[in-house]
């Protein structure tokens, strides 16, 4: 089984990389972009039967830093 974990900065946490991407998009002439937030997607190949709790623990213990980041798990 596969799962994807999407790690994103919490709302309100400044995202300098998102701001730089936004700036570059504007520089390329894309005017309609109001804001950009950058995150990270992690794909996990898992043994069948890995529980949601286990995946959640992986996120809390390593994949996301919950001080600044939120995460969302998507089964594939």
């Amino acid at each position: 089984m596969k799962a994807r974990v999407f790690v994103t900065l919490k709302p309100g946490v400044l995202d300098p990389q998102g701001k730089a991407i936004h700036h570059a998009l504007t520089g390329l002439g894309f005017e309609g972009v109001d804001d950009v937030r950058a995150g990270r997607m992690i794909e996990l190949e898992l043994a069948d039967g890995t529980s949601d709790d286990d995946i959640d623990a992986m996120c809390r213990k390593l994949l996301a830093n919950t001080v600044i980041e939120n995460y969302r798990i998507e089964a594939v």
């Binding site: 946490v13 300098p16 001080v67």
Partner: peptide
């Protein structure tokens, strides 16, 4: 030390990149 939970908070990318 912040990642290990010994100190609160986090160190993020410098605001000026």
């Amino acid at each position: 030390l912040t990642e290990a939970g010994l100190l609160p908070g986090a160190l993020m990318r410098n605001s000026g990149i």
